[in-house]
């Protein structure tokens, strides 16, 4: 072996050297064209898509946040309003209750006063009646005294009776 059919083991053949340089650059071009260009394009496209989606998501989030703030504000307003309504209702109810109680007291006081006046009047009337009766009785007694002779004992008895009558009537 080692004849004209093979080259030396360690040697640089000029044409092979030049050809290999060209081969390297051709390979570079082929790899660039068939691997890097399409794959980089697809990667760029995917990145674009991802960016777009992130942007959209961010926008949606912002919108949702805005709505949330709006809703919370509305809710807070409604709550305050409700509280105010309840408060005013309570106040009104209190006023009305106070008024009712006052009126009732007034009425009661009126009734009582009237009753007292009635009682006083009745009493007065009764006393007057008693007085009239006493007068009548005295007249009767005087008549009786005139009719018959009155002894000591009768006299005493009459006075007692009279006093007793008066005491019962008063």
């Amino acid at each position: 072996m080692g004849g004209s059919n093979t080259q030396a083991l360690v040697t640089i053949i000029p044409w092979t050297f030049i050809a290999q340089i060209l081969n390297l650059f051709i390979q570079m071009y082929l790899i660039k064209k068939f691997l890097f260009k399409p794959v980089n394009e697809i990667l760029a496209k995917r990145r674009e898509l991802a960016d777009k989606e992130i942007k959209e998501a961010r926008e949606a989030k912002e919108e949702a946040d805005g709505l949330k703030v709006q809703y919370e504000e509305g809710l807070a307003n409604a709550r305050a309003e409700a509280a105010q309504i309840v408060q005013s209702a309570q106040k009104e109810a209190q006023i009305r209750a106070d008024e009712t109680v006052r009126q009732a007291q007034e009425q009661a006081a009126g009734i009582r006063r009237k009753a007292e006046a009635d009682i006083a009047q009745e009493k007065k009337k009764a006393i007057n009646e008693v007085k009239d009766e006493i007068g009548g009785l005295a007249m009767d007694i005087a008549g009786k005294v005139v009719e018959k002779e009155i002894n000591e004992a009768d006299h005493k008895k009459l006075i007692d009776e009279f006093i007793k009558n008066v005491g019962e009537a008063s």
């Binding site: 000029p14 044409w15 030049i18 290999q20 082929l30 790899i31």
Partner: peptide, 22 residues
């Protein structure tokens, strides 16, 4: 200086390698 062009195994296999990679 360049001498004869030799179509060697090196070149042929290089082309095969390039074909495989591409």
């Amino acid at each position: 200086i360049l001498g004869d062009f030799l179509l060697t195994e090196t070149l042929v296999v290089s082309w095969i390698v390039m074909a495989i990679i591409t």
